[in-house]
Amino acid sequence: MSNQHKKHRREQPRLSPGAGALPNLGGTENMTVDQFKAEMRTGTGARLAVQLFIAMAFAKAEKERVDAYIMPIFAKYDFRVAKDMPGHTAGEKITNPELIYLAGLENEAVTAFYAECDAAHRAHGWRGAEGACPALVAARDQIKAENNLIKWAAPLFGVSFDTVNCSTLRREFVENLLCAAAKSL
C-alpha cells in the first residue's frame, strides 16, 4: 500500500455523534466510513440487520398465516363503528379486524370474536400467552429488532434513538441501514 493511499485512509471522514446522542453502544463513535461498511458487512451492524431481516420475513409470513384463519371468523360478524370518530361514522360497517376497536371493546360481539380468535390461535399451534395474537407478537419482535439497529446506528449519525424513533424518519432510517447492510454483502 502506498504512503499516499495510507494517508488517504487515515483522513477519511468520521461518523460521530452530536449533542444529545445516545451513549456509545458498542464502539460506534468516531467510526470511519470504511469501518461502518465493515461493521455492516460482518460486525454488529450486519448481525443486527440480519436479525431484522429475519424478524421482518417472519412477521410478514405470520400475518398472512394468521389472517388466513382469522378472516373467516371475522366475516361471521357484523361489526359497526360505535360512535362518530375522525374518519368513521357511527353505524358504519367495520371491514378490517384491525379496526375492531371502533366497535367498542365492551361490545359482547367483540368479546366473542376475541375468544374465537384465541381458540383458533391454539388450534393452529400457538403456545404463547393466552389472549395474544401470534401475528402481533411477531410484529412486536420486528419492532424490537428495528429498535436494536437504530440504537446501534443513531450515534453514528449524531442523533438520539428518541429523535429517530419519534419522527417520520424512522422508516427511512431503518430502510437506509438495511440497504447499507445489503450493499455491504
Results as ranks from 00 to 15, higher is better:
145 A>T: 10
102 L>V: 03
48 L>I: 05
74 F>S: 04
111 T>E: 12
73 I>P: 04
63 K>V: 06
56 M>K: 15
29 E>K: 08
32 T>R: 09
41 R>E: 10
152 W>R: 15
101 Y>N: 04
172 E>I: 04
84 D>M: 09
13 P>A: 10
155 P>H: 02
50 V>E: 13
152 W>N: 03
41 R>P: 01
20 G>V: 01
95 T>M: 06
91 G>M: 01
88 H>W: 15
58 F>I: 12
171 R>Q: 07
37 K>L: 11
156 L>I: 01
85 M>C: 03
83 K>L: 03
166 C>G: 09
5 H>S: 11
125 G>P: 05
157 F>V: 04
150 I>Y: 03
183 K>N: 14
113 F>D: 04
37 K>S: 07
108 E>L: 11
93 K>H: 04
156 L>P: 02
100 I>G: 00
13 P>W: 03
9 R>T: 05
7 K>G: 01
126 W>N: 06
164 V>M: 12
19 A>W: 11
14 R>D: 01
96 N>H: 08
164 V>F: 06
100 I>L: 14
185 L>G: 13
180 A>S: 15
170 R>Y: 03
136 L>G: 11
23 P>D: 13
82 A>N: 00
104 G>E: 07
167 S>H: 10
4 Q>Y: 00
49 A>K: 07
21 A>L: 06
183 K>Q: 15
139 A>V: 08
13 P>L: 13
119 A>W: 08
115 A>L: 13
120 A>N: 08
139 A>R: 14
14 R>P: 00
45 G>A: 09
81 V>T: 07
16 S>M: 01
116 E>L: 13
131 G>V: 08
117 C>Q: 14
149 L>M: 10
55 A>H: 09
60 K>L: 13
84 D>R: 05
93 K>M: 02
13 P>H: 04
20 G>D: 09
77 Y>N: 04
9 R>M: 14
115 A>R: 14
159 V>C: 13
137 V>F: 00
52 L>K: 06
182 A>Q: 10
128 G>H: 05
91 G>T: 00
132 A>I: 01
33 V>F: 13
67 D>L: 07
94 I>W: 02
68 A>K: 12
67 D>P: 06
90 A>G: 03
152 W>Y: 15
49 A>Q: 03
35 Q>W: 01
58 F>Y: 14
160 S>N: 10
107 N>C: 04
76 K>G: 08
168 T>W: 05
39 E>L: 03
128 G>R: 05
46 A>K: 12
17 P>G: 15
50 V>Q: 08
21 A>P: 10
